[in-house]
């Protein structure tokens, strides 16, 4: 179909009448309903495309910014084995960022544009990475809780209606579950260690528990995007459903570690077979989204510094590639 090129640029109103568009939308939705994958060259509503660009790029940015809090401990990892595992983990996060930027690029936006949005603050990344990692135990807590919450969010995305995103997520989830086990293992070693190590582990849980619950996003009643995203099968479960699942799985793990979850209202509810937990402080979440978290400034500045500091390197690579091309043309 010769309009495919235009369609894939997101110009769904070009050359299509209202009735044609309605037909396209209907066909699109029935494909989604039938659990078929939408591929880059398929027609898709512009709002679907924009939602995916927003979500995939936020996810990619989160991987990249997420390299920083843990990267903070690479040079100080307490054993050579931990150092190797942490380096490999932070490297995996960079790799996830790459697949996700590539998945976003299939929607007609370049990695450079996306990075620009991150550096100017126009694009968001997960609020969780604006918290600090003052001790080694934070590396364990991030693996256990943050990667644990991420997996909970991401496993359903392996069945997302958009093919490239779903496929990227299959690979990412495998690696994330490995990271989560490594994080839990760090917490286990600490919680069975010296009194100082147990204190480190408890304080890290205290720091990361509530921010991890916030990672699932606002309560369903206030979530703007949930209903439409579920209709498009970008999302399969609501924020509150996923959060509940996370709490139900994680509380027994904390008990196993002998650590106390910092929530006085937490209790097992026999009737519903779920844990009931306290109210999340959404004002803290809002503050972080507005850029006032403990490390928002440091994280964005670190990315800006790397980008600015690397500009001459990228320019040199381009200049060299151009010189080579010219030499090859001359030689031919």
């Amino acid at each position: 179909m010769y309009t495919q090129g235009l369609d894939s640029l997101g110009a769904d109103c070009l050359h299509t009448s209202a009735s044609e568009r309605a037909a396209l939308e209907q066909r699109f939705q029935s494909k989604v309903d039938a659990e078929e994958r939408i591929e880059p060259k398929d027609w898709m509503p512009d709002a679907y495309r924009q939602t995916l660009i927003r979500q995939i790029s936020q996810h990619a940015h989160s991987e990249i910014v997420g390299m920083l809090p843990e990267g903070n401990w690479i040079t100080r990892a307490p054993s050579l084995r931990r150092k190797a595992v942490l380096m490999a983990k932070v490297q995996d996060e960079g790799g996830h960022g790459m697949y996700l930027y590539s998945a976003a690029e299939t929607l007609g936006i370049s990695r450079d544009e996306l990075l620009e949005q991150l550096l100017t603050g126009a694009a968001k990344y997960s609020s969780i990475f604006n918290y600090p990692t003052p001790t080694w135990a934070d590396v364990g807590a991030i693996g256990w809780l943050v990667d644990g919450a991420a997996i909970m969010n991401q496993i359903p995305i392996c069945k997302c209606s958009y093919g490239p995103y779903a496929r990227a997520m299959v690979r990412i989830c495998k690696e994330e579950s490995f990271h989560q086990r490594q994080g839990f293992e760090i917490m286990m070693t600490l919680s069975r260690g010296t009194p100082e190590q147990r204190r480190m582990a408890q304080e890290a849980l205290d720091r990361w528990w509530w921010p991890s619950l916030m990672m699932f996003g606002p309560n369903d009643a206030t979530s703007k995007h949930t209903a439409q995203s579920m209709r498009w099968k970008i999302k399969r479960f609501t924020n509150d459903e996923l959060r509940q699942k996370f709490v139900d799985i994680t509380v027994p793990q904390a008990e196993f570690l002998g650590l106390r979850v910092p929530d006085p209202d937490l209790q097992w509810d026999e009737a519903s077979q779920h844990y009931r937990f306290g109210t999340i402080d959404w004002s803290e979440f809002q503050q972080i989204l507005q850029g006032n978290g403990p490390c928002n400034r440091e994280r964005v500045e670190a990315r800006q510094r790397a980008h600015e500091g690397g500009r001459w390197v990228r320019e040199a690579a381009m200049a060299y590639a151009e010189k080579r091309r010219q030499r090859e043309t001359q030689a031919a």
């Binding site: 920083l68 490999a88 932070v90 490297q91 960079g94 790799g95 790459m98 510094r305 790397a306 690397g310």
Partner: peptide, 18 residues
């Protein structure tokens, strides 16, 4: 290891980590 997360491009982050 000091570079990881701060390299001039993502590809170089991965290569230096490797």
């Amino acid at each position: 290891g000091e570079w990881i997360g701060h390299a001039p491009a993502l590809e170089e982050d991965l290569a230096l980590a490797n």
